[in-house]
Design a protein around this nucleic acid. Structure first.
Lengths: 356, 356
DNA sequence: CTGAAAGCGCTTACAG
DNA sequence: CTGAAAGCGCTTACAG
């Protein structure tokens, strides 16, 4: 952006602290103290300064303030993709508490790309944000992880605050959705209904979120004598479109499945769409489940059985963690996963009682 | 946020320009020029500096740079509510081009509250963002509007750049979705199907967006001898929940409607939900339409007939406008509204052929 | 082409 | 309680 400061001719410039001080008849030192609520200013002076500042519409220049070592008032938020309702709802929670605290938030996309995530984090740090919230799953492996860890560690050492949502192999405050338990619960529900020929549709397994959800699912499968290894699992992009592609592939590989478990709602919506196109009834012929419980899940028809994660809350909690003083040891807040049973799951059509 | 700069003991601090200059054996002036790509540095020196900077992992301190009058690299984005898919998709477009341009974006919620919007805009300005994008409808009336205009005008005079999405009574670059045409098209479709007993569900009429959509709808109604005045219109909150409440009220007021036109998809989803709960079939007994075409509209059952607005594109365009040098006169990019007919609309059940 | 120096607008020890 | 002054880390005229 051009910043050659092409001031309009005669435009009223923003008042500076000097203007306030002068108008109030004090030094900028007392003016600064009065405005920041610091101690050591007479109430009388403080009041006078505040009044003038108000009248002039004075707002401190953030850059000057931060550079001078004042408190920082912007936090960074890294999401995979803000257009994705999961992240949009988390962001909403973060923005909500930020506004209440008089903070401002900088959002970046990582696009689910570890390299990009690293770049974005570095940019936020360069921008001098006081805290960084990394939403969205970390990556299970990869050399980038070490770099992210290193970058964040030195940021922390520099006085920065970090909170992550999801598991991150980082010794920082984290809001941890109970993905494993959620995975367990959804499979338990599906097998409890009597399904045995189950197909799974998942996003990239290099995401810790996926890894954990699958973990819980594997345990639940084993309890009824099944396991992940012998279950058809199709990996795709973690989006509605990815869900469509994966569903088509799954139906190819295992045309006899009676239940399809998608690892997020977006993919589940894609699955529903494919089944509808093919005239396969849900839950009559095939049951479908999602994960996250994004707002629309309840409005689909059939309503989507899914695992609810309190996204807005997770965002709020993450920012609150990041805002509170750093504890001796990283804190962990668990976000409970709750199975929400709606209309997209039912008992499988019995062999002799098939509606066909 | 505490910012007392409690550095870790011995933590490696971020390298500053001085470090780079010293290491490269030049003054900070040449180091600065080399890094910014300014003229007047020998290629040899420039290369050497860049190499050192790279090795040291140097990233300029944004606050110092901006304070010193360097280019600004953050833009502000004001939305009503980021959890709302309409805004999430716009934000996604903005973030996309921002990332490509090496820019960072600060997002604020206005919560559909004019006062809050003003506050947020002022905060962004105080934060020294180089451009501000105001997404979401302006307000038709109100004293706040004048303040917003004044604030933005002086920001512009100060060299700031502004672009708005939607009509705003502001002489600034704008991306203008064709709300009027969209409103016209959707009513034309519905009356073309034969509906005459139509109900309308809308968000706050103080939003210009609503005003424009209703305008187009009114014109289309008149062409078949109807008009807005004699059409039941229920105003509610511009959300799914608001749609539910409004639908219940509409059904009370005018139980005989054969079509319900909602002024955005969120409200339409709420309407569908209420109709489903009451066992009223769509489109068998009542046709329903939305507006915006958020991603899920196509995945509802029945698929929602709606007016598509290219949200991601609108975000992209807005940022591009804000980034390009200010033109003599405000520019305007139109975003075309396109009627998308799906399964939620059909001919009304004929009198004698009612399924009842 | 290169450097010494002023200045961006604040905050915060350090003296009174 | 109050103020003069240094300093945060850069950029950019202004001299060489």
């Amino acid at each position: 952006m051009a910043a050659g400061t092409p001031r309009g001719r005669g435009a009223a410039r923003r008042p500076r602290l000097t203007d306030v001080a002068q108008e109030a008849g004090v030094s900028i030192a007392t003016a600064s103290r009065a405005l920041s609520g610091a101690q050591g200013v007479s109430e009388y002076m403080a009041e006078r300064v505040r009044e003038v500042a108000d009248r002039l519409g004075y707002v401190a220049n953030l850059h000057a303030r931060t550079l001078a070592g004042g408190p920082t008032s912007v936090v960074g938020l890294v999401v995979h993709e803000i257009g994705d309702p999961y992240f949009a709802e988390i962001a909403s929670g973060v923005l909500g508490v930020a506004a209440a605290e008089g903070l401002t938030v900088q959002i970046c996309h990582s696009g689910r790309d570890p390299e990009a995530e690293l770049t974005q984090i570095r940019t936020l740090i360069a921008n001098g944000v006081g805290a960084i919230i990394v939403a969205g799953s970390g990556f299970v492996d990869g050399g980038v992880r070490a770099k992210v860890t290193g970058t964040l560690r030195s940021y922390l050492a520099d006085g920065g605050r970090v909170a992550v949502i999801g598991r991150h192999h980082l010794a920082v405050d984290t809001v941890q959705p109970d993905n494993d338990a959620g995975g367990y619960a959804v499979v338990e529900h599906v097998v409890g209904l009597g399904h045995r020929r189950i197909g799974i549709i998942t996003g990239s397994r290099s995401l810790t979120t996926i890894h954990d959800r699958l973990g819980g699912m594997g345990r639940a499968l084993q309890e009824v004598g099944l396991d992940l290894a012998s279950t058809p699992v199709v990996e795709g992009v973690f989006t509605r479109e990815g869900g469509k592609v994966a569903a088509a592939e799954l139906l190819e590989q295992a045309p006899d499945v009676t239940a399809i478990i998608a690892l997020n709602d977006d993919m589940a919506i894609g699955v529903l769409s494919v089944l509808r196109d093919r005239g396969i009834s849900v839950p009559g012929q095939v049951s479908v489940t999602g994960f996250d419980d994004v707002a629309v899940a309840q409005d689909l028809a059939p309503g989507l059985t899914t695992v609810r994660l309190p996204m807005g809350d997770m965002g709020r909690q993450a920012l609150q963690l990041a805002l509170s003083p750093q504890a001796k040891r990283p804190r962990r807040r668990r976000a409970r996963a709750e199975l929400i049973v709606r209309d997209s799951t039912a008992r499988p059509a019995g062999p002799g009682r098939s509606a066909d």
